[in-house]
Design a protein around this nucleic acid. Sequence first.
DNA 1: CTGAATATGGACTATATATTCTATTTTTTC
DNA 2: GAAAAAATAGAATATATAGTCCATATTCAG
Lengths: 272, 272
Amino acid sequence: MNESSAPATIPAFEERLLELADRLPKRLRQCAEFVAANQDRIAVSTVAEMAEGAGVQPSAFMRFCQIMGFTGFSEMQRLFRDSYVGGWPDYTTRLDHLREKGGETGGGLLAEFVEAGRASLEGLLKTVDLQVLDEAVATLSFARVIHVIGMRRSFPVASYLSYAFEKMGVPAVLHSGLGRLDNQNAIVEGDAVLAVTFSPYAVETMDLVEKAMERQIPAVVLTDSTVNPLRKAGARLLAVSEVDFGAFRSLSATLCLAITLAVAIGTRRLSE
Amino acid sequence: MNESSAPATIPAFEERLLELADRLPKRLRQCAEFVAANQDRIAVSTVAEMAEGAGVQPSAFMRFCQIMGFTGFSEMQRLFRDSYVGGWPDYTTRLDHLREKGGETGGGLLAEFVEAGRASLEGLLKTVDLQVLDEAVATLSFARVIHVIGMRRSFPVASYLSYAFEKMGVPAVLHSGLGRLDNQNAIVEGDAVLAVTFSPYAVETMDLVEKAMERQIPAVVLTDSTVNPLRKAGARLLAVSEVDFGAFRSLSATLCLAITLAVAIGTRRLSE
DNA sequence: CTGAATATGGACTATATATTCTATTTTTTC
DNA sequence: GAAAAAATAGAATATATAGTCCATATTCAG
């Protein structure tokens, strides 16, 4: 029974499990089988629960963890918890470290941002609600004109959407809030609003969407969580959670969802 | 603050969160916002971790749980652990699944764009020239004012850079080309130019950079290949190759490089 | 069948974590 | 601007849970 070192990834964990499977005594094999069939439970259960599930005593389960190479259940659980949250590290503290060290090279910083972007994209696949996405596409495809709005951090996204629509020949207007003009009156029946807004929500954006909704103009909102005041008003919410590094969101996932939305709308329009 | 009964489902939980969101004191609102943006973490984190994430004391987070209607954190966590049905397939499986079944619906498109974004980010790490990056950071850190320019597809990137600089207190001007004014005269000795441009290169951008270089104003150019007319003129070129899907580039890599540049400049300025 | 080796169950202990309490600060109200 | 109310931070406490140990049971070799 070599103890070696603990698996560092889930594939490595599975490897190990497979390798041990046959030469394990009864109770420990029960553990192995239960774990194999219920991997996901490890992250959210206690030893007692896992042991009960496997039909063994907690202490037997502990031995199983140790034979797998971990010091105990907690260490094994950490592997699954971390991989569940996509290894989202605490970027804020890491950035602080970078700041303190000061002389960090650009390469290290780049790696951090690439990692944040990658994690965001993966998270997007997991969390996006395809039904809402399709509904949003439908809503916006029928619009006479799409009014795009986004301030501050969301402005790059809004301008990219606007560029994409332009390129595909979809009628769209980018509301910039320039000079505090909100061009409310330009939004007429048959149009639709596509807003991009992240907490803290820009008042200009919230205002525009709210006023539009009051007039029965449909609205789609790209935002950071489904808990957004605009939901009460009846807007379709597309939630994207970005991993942020320090004070900066990567925007990768948001832009990705934005371009998907734009292209889907563009093609849908063409075919009708 | 009525205690009523605890939400029994996640939608009910969200409802409650939304309902409370505005009439919550500072710290508790921080909790609400963090929870809204990181719902999935609740199942696998401790109060201490959640509190740290939200930037509050554990006790504040406990109060938040109670106001949400639970007796404490454990009860709230149970809701999320129970509803964590698991079986969340990993990134690749999910991607394949979306590609196959997604087909014409939004899902298939999304999978393609996510993949394009991810590939771009990976490519970025491999191809970026760290030495040039560090030189670019040095050049721009010493500038009195950074003049940012980017048209069409590059405009979102330019505006994001401009936003990031603003947030970090780095003096920067976004040249939009609005009304065909190029504000050449605003660029004076001691300043620097940061241009974003992809083939086909916008004349406004090329003009601005060329004229600046003639006057010995240093320029950094974020572009798609090292064969760019501006190199001859002496600009520092940062090349990014984006993977594109259909007619659309993902921008992920470009934005990632842009934010790295911005943050590196911001921190460098602070430390000098 | 007997003795050695191994596996198991369950009680015990250590520790991590949730929860509560209170002094202090901040905000609100008059 | 002072008093009252509410909110907050941090220490103190309670509790749930992981981890250990050992007596007993089981398996295996000869």
